[in-house]
Design a protein around this nucleic acid. Structure first.
Length: 592
DNA sequence: CGCATTTGACCAGCGC
DNA sequence: GCGCTGGTCAAATGCG
């Protein structure tokens, strides 16, 4: 089996393996060994689907002797059906042409039916022709170069697929949004008398649904009085920045006077929108549904850094002491674009302060750098799956499994989905290796066991010092080689979903594969920001996408606004004020 | 001086 | 109604 990684595009076989029957191109005794091996079946052609390897040897790197083909390397040789030229020999012009995926070396084989003499005894030394050997060397050189080009082509193809995947996500979200909006409009016309026919412009959604859910909330359909809302539509981002202060003041007045607060939780106050009535049976169904849509994605990762690097820029707007945790909770909002509704909370785990808990809510309304895209894709996908399921029900459980195994396959052993909280939360626990204890979870949480422990790249990355980075990537590569099998199981699970939730099988397998890659990348990135840059670069090379923006991944503090001055390791909790509320840490970041 | 952070105040939801 | 809690605001402060 090839030792490198492989990537399968869906179920379509790309390369086929044919066992060579006659070897006449290697000066060593490999030809003899291959011939002996195939003497009894030299007419057979075994066709095995096999993924193409994207990490073949570089053309100008010498091939050590121990990497030259061995007898058990037979599986490493691929018939290259895409080659556009035949080797310059006359007796094998109709033969399949093989290359070793590990070394880049090629085997030339004779026609199996016309060159029987070379395989009969299997022990005689090869009849080497110096001229032919030279020719073969030239061919090898050419082929190595060709493979390099092919490698680049495949990378480009994969990059294209990645882009298509993201585009599909956006498109699907848009379609779902349109459909939902139509339903809401019908509903509003039936049940709301204060709409006045005002149609609120739909907000642009980047990757996820949470912001979409905001737009879908019936309350926004009656937000006429909030037209000056600072959140506005992200489409108008350019205006938001200059008028934000004024709008905030106006909003504050409305906020204080209670105008529209209940009915129009604005996007900019998305986190604050949590203050809208929680799961209250006395409220109408739409409000409950809207509440359920305010999904959060929480990431638990071991990190000494004050904040995990997710590729986005954040501005701290508050810090509070939370009940039951001596570590303060910090509140951040995304500042990569004015009006971006995404917020996050950062807090140390009370039980284990080496664990950093980052909770995201909302979806970015602006383009993201690749590093941020990984996180956004994972979190928004998690939220999407969460929102699409009816959690307390059996169906919800099923969908939750589907979530963890499709959207979050790499961290499926650490994915918890809480339906008991006022707002559904997906928790990605990147701090633990899979073990039986992981099942000791509160009954209110659905815990998703790992179907494939080797996929726990996240846990490996989280628990692994940076010195073991190569192993992480080896695992990632190994993980990629599992794609075909994963897709199969995922497709089987997908079959349980209603038809209208299913993309085409090709789209699904494509999305699943890429989602896994993205999830793996995200997990690795979030696990330890100390080697984020290396991870991001390597992951990017794996998925063949654009290189991360230099300042988005190489310096944790350069692209975030995380405090950098309070790394003393001390935790200082101030005394509570008069009502015991709003305890604030004095110049202490929650991560310390 | 501009920007980010800090931090006291404020508000809403919830439980009693 | 009251107190507790979570979340946010915005003036004050710090920093480059």
């Amino acid at each position: 089996m090839a030792k490198g990684s492989g990537l399968s595009f869906g179920s379509d076989p790309i390369f086929f393996l044919h066992k060579p029957t006659v070897i006449n191109s290697f000066p060593e005794d490999h030809s003899k060994r291959f011939a002996a091996m195939d003497a009894t079946k030299n007419q057979s052609t075994t066709t095995i689907q096999f993924p193409v390897n994207l990490n073949c040897a570089q053309p100008d790197s010498p091939v050590p002797d121990d990497e030259k083909p061995r007898i058990n390397d037979e599986m490493d040789f691929f018939a290259d059906k895409n080659r556009d030229s035949k080797p310059p020999t006359t007796d094998n012009k109709n033969s399949p042409y093989y290359f070793n995926v590990n070394t880049g070396l090629h085997l030339l084989t004779a026609n199996t039916s016309s060159d029987q003499s070379m395989v009969d005894d299997g022990m005689s030394p090869p009849n080497l022709d110096d001229k032919r050997v030279k020719n073969e060397l030239v061919v090898l050189q050419t082929e190595i170069e060709r493979m390099h080009a092919e490698n680049e082509r495949l990378r480009s193809m994969l990059s294209q697929v990645t882009n298509n995947y993201n585009a599909l996500q956006v498109h699907m979200v848009a379609l779902m949004q349109d459909q939902k909006a139509e339903n809401n409009e019908e509903h509003d016309q039936k049940h709301s008398g204060n709409n006045n026919g005002v149609v609120v412009p739909r907000q642009f959604i980047d990757l996820g649904l949470a912001a979409k859910a905001e737009a879908e909330e019936p309350s926004l359909s009656s937000s006429e009085g909030r037209s000056g809302d600072r959140s506005g539509s992200p489409i108008n981002n350019g205006e938001v920045g200059s008028k934000e202060l004024e709008l905030r003041k106006n909003e504050k007045k409305e906020y204080s006077s209670g105008i529209g607060r209940e009915e129009s939780p604005d996007q900019g106050s998305q986190w604050g929108a949590n203050k809208v009535p929680r799961l209250n049976p006395t409220k109408n169904v739409d409000q409950t549904e809207a509440t359920m849509r305010k999904a959060r994605v929480s990431v638990r990762a071991r990190s000494e850094a004050p904040m995990i690097t997710d590729g986005c820029q954040w501005r701290k707007y508050g810090q509070k002491m939370a009940k039951g945790n001596p570590c303060p909770r910090a509140y951040y909002r995304c500042t990569m674009a004015a009006g971006c509704p995404v917020r996050k909370q950062v807090q140390r785990c009370a039980e284990d302060r080496s664990i950093l808990i980052t909770t995201y809510e909302g979806n970015h309304s602006h383009p993201l750098p690749p590093a941020a895209m990984a996180m956004a894709s994972t979190t928004s996908s998690a939220a999407r799956m969460l929102l699409s399921g009816s959690m307390p029900s059996a169906d919800g459980l099923m969908n939750s499994n589907f979530l963890a195994r499709t959207v979050l396959p790499c961290s499926s052993s650490m994915a918890t989905i809480s339906a008991s909280a006022p707002f559904p939360t997906v928790t990605l626990d990147l701090t633990q290796n899979p073990n039986p204890l992981q099942f000791q979870r509160p009954p209110s949480q659905f815990y998703v066991p790992s179907p494939n422990p080797p996929q726990n790249l996240a846990a490996a990355a989280a628990a692994t010092p940076s010195s073991l980075l190569p192993q992480i990537f080896n695992q990632a590569l190994y993980n990629q080689s599992k794609f075909s099998g994963l897709q199969m199981s995922q497709d089987m699970e997908a079959a349980q979903l209603p038809n209208h939730h299913q993309p085409s099988s090709q789209q699904q397998s494509q999305q699943n594969s890429l989602a896994e890659t993205v999830s793996a990348a995200t997990a690795a990135i979030t696990a330890d920001p100390n080697f984020t840059a290396a991870l991001a670069a390597a992951i990017t090379s794996i998925i063949g996408g654009a290189q991360p923006q230099p300042n988005s991944t190489t310096n944790n503090n350069a692209n975030t606004t995380a405090p950098t001055t309070s790394n003393s390791g001390n935790i200082t909790t101030s005394n509570s004020n008069s009502n015991g509320n709003n305890k604030l840490c004095n110049s202490n970041f929650p991560g310390n």
